[in-house]
């Protein structure tokens, strides 16, 4: 390649880019005109979708299907209950679901994911079928969106099957797994519970299942989580989530694991244990929590102080004593914790 070629190539590339840009500008002028048209059509579409009665009018209205699908989905997401079902039914009749099914199979991963997400609101067989198919899409985003959509509408496949298709805890570690499990637990709690018990399930997935169930007030879980926490490697990043769940249950059944973890070698476990001790109200740890105000890590000191306040008068007495002492950093930790809570030392 000679130097002259360089000049030619550069000219060709510059010309090509300008040609494409010109085409885009022309395209823009054309869509601009169409856009106004579409805004008009959108105005007509709204009352028909909301009206529910005049379904025939909706089918007769010649609007692009993508517009119908997009508007229906936006409306459906605003409401719930009967209204949601009515709008979805009217939209399905007019062909919105079919359009979304088409989008879910074709197009970029981004398009597919959006369409799959929207199909959550459409409960017909074809939509369910499309979603089931999307569970084995090549894009992980689409697979997760499909799982969420199915779970949202009570159609979730067995949790164990989801673990496999989504690669939960292996390639997929999204926090959205918690939301997915929560949705499933709303109607099939036992399945999510079983994930915590199964020895083959990775700890990160167990943590997600525990997070999903920690609002459930199912105290039967406390014993299981306690044992799980005692068994888990004390430097595990999942352990704080187990401890937090034990704290959220505020049940003494979690005390053994929490007590054990107060002396863990990693700061994140010690901090989470201190927090849980406060929430459970483990007054027998008050002395240990007082010691933890000298922990080398700020978070541990902060959580220990907070926990002592939660323990009530006993904890406050310890804080007050340490705040009058000389040893730093415990003294500052105690003094400022009390000051922050507005408690006289």
């Amino acid at each position: 390649m000679g130097l002259l070629d360089l000049w030619d190539i550069s000219l060709a590339l510059a010309a090509l880019s300008l040609a494409i840009m010109t085409a885009l500008v022309v395209g823009r002028f054309i869509t601009e005109r169409r856009r106004r048209n579409i805004l008009e059509q959108r105005k007509l579409l709204m009352p028909l979708l909301l009206g529910g009665k005049k379904r025939t009018a909706l089918t007769e209205l010649a609007v692009p299907k993508w517009l119908l699908a997009a508007l229906s989905v936006e409306l459906v997401q605003l409401v719930r209950g009967d209204e949601r079902a009515q709008i979805a039914a009217a939209a399905t009749d007019a062909g919105a679901a079919a359009e979304l099914q088409r989008q879910a199979r074709r197009g970029s991963a981004r398009k597919r994911a959006s369409a799959v997400e929207a199909l959550a609101y459409f409960h017909d067989d074809k939509s369910s079928e499309t979603l089931a198919l999307a569970l084995s899409d090549k894009s992980p985003d689409v697979r997760l969106a499909a799982a969420m959509a199915l779970a949202e509408s009570g159609r979730a496949p067995a949790a164990e099957r989801l673990m496999e298709t989504l690669g939960l805890g292996v390639s997929e570690n999204s926090m959205l797994i918690v939301s997915l499990f929560q949705k499933i637990a709303a109607y099939r709690p036992a399945e999510i519970r079983d994930l915590i018990l199964l020895p083959t399930v990775p700890n990160s997935v167990k943590a997600a299942a525990i997070d999903a169930l920690s609002a459930s007030q199912d105290y039967g879980l406390v014993k299981t989580i306690n044992e799980l926490a005692l068994r888990t490697d004390p430097s595990s990043e999942d352990l704080p989530r187990f401890l937090r769940a034990l704290g959220a249950f505020s049940h003494p059944g979690g005390a053994p694991a929490v007590r054990h973890c107060l002396s863990a070698p990693t700061w994140w476990v010690r901090a989470a244990a201190a927090e849980a001790a406060g929430r459970i109200g483990m007054s027998d740890t008050a002395f240990k929590l007082g010691e933890m105000l000298s922990d080398p890590d700020w978070w541990v000191r902060f959580r220990a102080g907070e926990a002592l306040v939660r323990l009530g008068s006993e904890g406050k007495t310890i804080l007050s004593r340490i705040s009058k002492g000389k040893a730093e950093p415990a003294r500052s930790a105690a003094r400022l914790t009390l000051a922050e809570q507005g408690i006289p030392a």
Binding site: Q77, L78, V79, R80, D82, E83, R84
Partner: peptide
């Protein structure tokens, strides 16, 4: 809370 029920 959203999503809401318009009737409500």
């Amino acid at each position: 809370a959203k999503p809401f029920i318009p009737e409500e």
